[in-house]
Amino acid sequence: MAVQKRKYKKGEEISLLCFWMGGHRYATPLEYFKEIVQYRELTKVPFMSEWYEGVLNLRGKVITVIDLRKKLKMEPASERPIILLCDLPPYYLGAVVDGVDGVQTIYGNDLELIESPMHPGVTHRIEEKDRETFILSLSDVLEEEMKSHV
């Protein structure tokens, strides 16, 4: 049940959702997100890894929520974390991040491939005047998550 991998073409216009984790700015194509939910107390699920946050009721649906920060071994650095609802068929789950920075549109050729990322899931980098953004492949992170689970 592999999640589809996203490829980036050179001239392609890409809308990214940018968010903060562990003091770094990350971005993932907007198409993978369904909505943004304010963090709230979740129902814990027993016998799960530490980065497994729990389950959430979203309009009658029970949604699994993971803490993306803990998953990537980062210190949670926000008083008001945010849950990003990710739609990566077959998975549909919430991911907790420190905060959201908004939507940014870039072009495929702005992306700079990263050969040896600081942690799994980071595929590219965008270098701008005053900031650096890492493209995070949620599918890579999730695939790894599912593996470590089984």
Partner: peptide
């Protein structure tokens, strides 16, 4: 009875969730 997400797989002793 609501099913737990696929992401969870089978959790021992948990048969589902209720809202």
């Amino acid at each position: 009875v609501k099913k737990l997400g696929l992401e969870l797989g089978a959790v021992k002793g948990v048969t589902g969730a209720a809202i």
